Amino acid sequence: MAGEGLSVQLAARVLDVSASGYYEWKSRAPSARSIRHALLTDAIREIHTVSRGTYGFRRVHAELTLGRGLVVAHGTVELLMARAGLKGATGRPKWVRARPDTIAMDLVDRRFARSAPNQLWVTDITEHPTAEGKVYCAVVLDTHSRRVVGWSIDSSPSAALVTNALGMAIESRKPPPGAVIHSNRGVQFGSWAFTDRAKASGLVPSMGSIGDCYDNSMIESFWSRMQVELLDRRRWKTRIELANAIFEYLEIWHNRQRRHSRLGMLTPIEFENRQLIIGA
């Protein structure tokens, strides 16, 4: 406090100590401990500088004891480095995987058939190259009619990609509470953004096991058809070119024109419309 320009008498009165005691302490010779800490701090700074700022307290301690033969505790080195503002270089950020609370159970168990729309949706991501770089596409598929109810296209496989596809499906279909959204255990589907969007809309997340494509086989089959019927039929020059082609495939060809053998050779939209007529 005195070093910051405050009155010694005022500081002593606030702290309930004597001013004479402060002046006696100030004129006292440094203790052996403080001298040793000062010398150790100088050695630590030198070692830290030689290491190009990469050494943490463990490696500094090793250099002090093994390299220089000094006797010093780990805690002392850690304390002195903290006081001197010295830190080691941290490693690369680790890949962030889905937290345990965002990993859902498999509620589908490879049984994809449903008696009505908006009971079970499946979702996944695919990628395809262009001369400019890859294009990523996320799709949400209704297992009852095989209709693409949500999709998103981007240049990176982010959590926003899958969340946008899910958001489109929710806005267009208004699923009832308890409907299931099934995915693999990709980090995008375990993200807070995706799971929060699903749960806020009353959807129940479901995830297959790790590395087993059969747990989400319906959408894997969809990607396989899209690969044969669109993606692999030519080389794509730009991302925009491919994105436009994917849009046309999903909304025009697949939903409105392509006849599906599992739907009695009806298109997904025809199948849903017929189900509405029968239900009425």
Rank of each mutant, 00 (worst) to 15 (best):
L10H: 15
L15E: 01
S27W: 02
S34C: 02
R36P: 03
H37F: 04
H37K: 10
D42T: 10
D42L: 10
R45M: 01
I47P: 03
S51W: 06
T54C: 13
H61F: 02
G69M: 01
L70F: 07
L79D: 13
L86K: 06
K94Y: 11
T102W: 00
I103W: 00
A116N: 12
Q119S: 08
W121T: 04
T123V: 00
I125R: 01
A131T: 05
C137N: 06
A138M: 07
L141E: 04
V149P: 09
S152H: 14
S158V: 05
S158D: 11
S158C: 06
I170Q: 07
S172Y: 10
P175Q: 13
V180Y: 00
N184S: 15
G186C: 06
V187G: 15
A200I: 06
S209N: 15
G211E: 13
Y214F: 15
Y214L: 14
D215Y: 05
I219P: 05
I219N: 02
L230W: 09
R233Q: 13
R235A: 14
I246T: 00
L250I: 12
W253Y: 14
N255V: 08
R256M: 12
R256C: 15
R258I: 01
S261H: 05
S261T: 09
E272I: 13
N273P: 12
N273M: 14
I277D: 14
